[in-house]
């Protein structure tokens, strides 16, 4: 019987039916119900500050979108400009982008689907297909052959060529590439596609390959220093920034770099929430790199810092799987004398 069958009422539901019937499962659920209420540290001021920051970011996105829309209106309402572009026939989503500075945004997708001839500016411009969210800017970095295909507000497919993608939103944007999709979360990247070969350069923040089975990355993803991603990290990086940096390096297959970031994270922010996942990640990466004693110390450190954590059992098993070894001094194994 499917969920739909239940919705249309082919079986009556007993309003007093128990939520859990299995006695073994009831014991586990009882433990979950009896969890101590969390000691919440976050304050109203912090939340309001975070909200103000998000609102400012959203406003900047709206202003940028309005500016692009205004520029577009200017172009549409200037017939001379259209004469120069007569060979760029408007063909829905297959229209070419020859001008590297042209951004694919909500405003432009609306324009590429326009049914009125250039110059007739009085006719309303209606969107027909999916529209890319205004917080995402896609630019052609060269005279590319085809235009990106917009599959949804946060979903697009890139054809052959060189592209720049910049997402100001933390919501994931899925970019279909010839060798599989990637996810961009508030990040910026350059993509070069030639046939089936793809080269992705991460300029800023989080970019993740979807369904990545291991650390291998099918197409090279590299991180390059930019103004917003300087090579020399300041000492005051927050726990979240270090965690993001480690994730980015893991996604790029840079295991040693990820280990360095995680070490900084768990050392500089030892009591942060990010340090918990960080220590487990560190243990896994060290183990994968063949540094089993150091991996054991990372797990031991986790167990010492958070003895009652929900993942204690898992971490214990991981540590035991590494067998016995030298005692640890923090994250480092004491050298055998």
């Amino acid at each position: 019987m499917s969920e739909h069958d239940f919705r249309v009422g082919t079986r009556s539901t007993d309003p007093g039916e128990p939520a859990v019937r299995h006695p073994g499962l009831q014991a586990l659920v009882k433990a979950a119900r009896m969890q101590q209420p969390p000691a919440v540290q976050v304050r109203a001021e912090t939340v309001l500050e975070g909200w103000q920051r998000r609102r400012a970011t959203q406003r900047r996105g709206i202003v940028a979108a309005l500016a692009m829309a205004a520029a577009l209106v200017l172009v549409v309402s200037t017939p001379e400009l259209w004469k120069d572009h007569e060979d760029h026939e408007v063909r829905g989503s297959a229209a070419p982008i020859d001008d590297p500075k042209v951004a694919v945004s909500e405003a432009e997708v609306m324009d590429t689907t326009r049914s009125t001839p250039p110059g007739e500016t009085s006719a309303p411009v209606e969107p027909r297909g999916p529209v890319l969210a205004t917080t995402i800017v896609v630019q052609a970095l060269a005279a590319n052959v085809a235009q990106p295909e917009i599959l949804g507000p946060r979903h697009l497919r890139l054809p052959e060529g060189r592209w720049s993608i910049d997402s100001q939103s933390a919501e994931p944007v899925t970019v279909e590439l010839p060798d599989g999709p990637i996810e961009v979360r508030g990040g910026a990247l350059h993509v070069k596609i030639a046939g089936h070969e793809v080269h992705v350069t991460v300029l800023r923040e989080a970019v993740d390959r979807v369904d990545l089975g291991g650390l291998e990355v099918a197409s090279p993803i590299e991180s390059v220093p930019t103004e917003s991603n300087p090579p020399a990290r300041p000492a005051s990086q927050s726990a979240a920034e270090l965690a993001r940096e480690a994730e980015q390096r893991m996604a790029a297959g840079d295991r040693q770099g990820a280990i360095r970031s995680l070490r900084r994270l768990v050392t500089k922010h030892p009591r942060s929430a990010a340090a918990q996942a960080g220590l487990i990640d560190l243990g896994r990466l060290l183990k994968a790199a063949g540094h089993e004693d150091e991996a054991r110390c990372a797990y031991a450190e986790f167990l010492e810092r958070w003895p009652g954590h929900a993942l204690t059992g898992d971490v214990l098993r991981a540590k035991r799987a590494l067998g016995d070894g030298p005692a640890c001094d923090g994250l480092a194994p004491k050298s055998a004398r």
Binding site: P38, A39, V40, V42, V47, G50, A273
Partner: peptide, 17 residues
């Protein structure tokens, strides 16, 4: 609610925010 949904007290502050 967050703690009951995740079983992880350590992420409660972040998610509450």
């Amino acid at each position: 609610q967050i703690q009951r949904m995740t079983g992880d007290a350590s992420i409660v502050d972040d998610l509450v925010q």
